[in-house]
């Protein structure tokens, strides 16, 4: 708690922290409205669905318990980037301002310092997952449906997948900033890695591999891809009668957990073994 309190003292008065958290919260709350608007749009323009298949998009059980945890976990992965930037700025400023060195001089052990930053990641993960749970409950309650315990917890394992994804992503962001130690450069490199480098390599694999299984087997061995895949499948495909994983995939969870462990180790190594000059 002491380490968490120290971390809170550091960030609570920070303007960037307030802005980024505000932007993240806003996005968090806006997504369900966006989904509603999208369904309306489909309804207005979905001639094929309504005329040929006689299905109304608003009839999709997006916010119903059988689907909601998977849907939310999948969509909210998109907001992870805000928290990644907060982590990069937070840890990076400690390197740039040399406050990490002063913390150690003041009597904090390097491991305590590392744990205080890890606690920040854990805090983000817990709060985010909790908010997603509350949001899911509210959204589900607004639709007429079964609110029994078994219905609520039916596929709640997707929330665990989401928290695993979030923690792994934040850990990779922390690894990037621990390696490069410059906020601006790291934000650029992290974005490039996340949105360009890994997807390009995955694209290469996709072209090279002849069987879909090969592609899947290789690609999830990249850290961020493993993180994305902690919540498997695009859930909305089921509304087009395509197969969607009903629960978390154990192999993917293991791969993500192994990456989490490895990155935790490298982050600890970079924080505790380096000279703080």
């Amino acid at each position: 708690m002491r380490l968490f309190y120290i971390e809170w003292l550091k960030v609570s008065r920070s303007r960037y922290f307030k802005w980024m958290m505000g932007a993240w919260l806003l996005t968090f709350l806006i997504v369900p409205l966006g989904v509603d608007q999208f369904l309306d749009f489909l309804e207005r323009n979905g001639d094929f669905m309504q005329n040929e298949l006689n299905i109304s998009p608003s009839a999709f059980p997006i916010f119903h318990f059988s689907d909601i945890w998977h849907n939310l976990a999948y969509v909210y992965k998109l907001t992870t980037v805000f928290l990644c930037i907060i982590v990069i700025v937070n840890v990076g400023q400690e390197w740039e301002e040399k406050t990490i060195r002063q913390n150690v001089i003041d009597g904090m052990s390097r491991m305590e310092y590392f744990m205080s930053k890890t606690l920040l990641l854990v805090g983000f993960t817990i709060i985010s997952t909790l908010l997603l749970f509350i949001l899911g409950m509210i959204l589900a309650a607004t639709t007429e449906q079964d609110m029994s315990w078994s219905a609520i917890t039916g596929n709640i394992d997707f929330l665990f997948g989401y928290s695993l994804h979030l923690f792994l992503h934040l850990s990779v962001a922390m690894l990037f900033i621990n390696v490069f130690r410059k906020v601006g450069l790291t934000v650029l490199l992290f974005m490039a890695y996340m949105y360009i480098f890994e997807p390009l390599i995955l694209g290469g694999f996709f072209l090279y591999m002849h069987h879909e299984n090969d592609w899947v087997n290789y690609t999830h061995f990249f850290p961020l891809e493993a993180s994305w895949r902690a919540v498997p499948s695009i859930p909305f495909q089921k509304y087009l009668m395509m197969y969607v994983a009903p629960h978390l995939d154990a192999t993917r969870v293991y791969v993500a957990l192994i990456w989490t462990g490895l990155i935790f180790y490298f982050n600890a190594l970079l924080t505790t073994k380096r000279d703080l000059r």
Binding site: R2, L9, Q93, E97
Partner: peptide
């Protein structure tokens, strides 16, 4: 101790910075 030059969190006040030092020193 101070090494080289004063190092503090620039967005925090003097008092808040000292609070962090005091917390670290328990």
């Amino acid at each position: 101790a101070i090494l080289e030059h004063p190092v503090f969190y620039p967005h925090l006040s003097g008092e808040q910075n000292l609070k962090i030092s005091a917390e670290i020193k328990r």
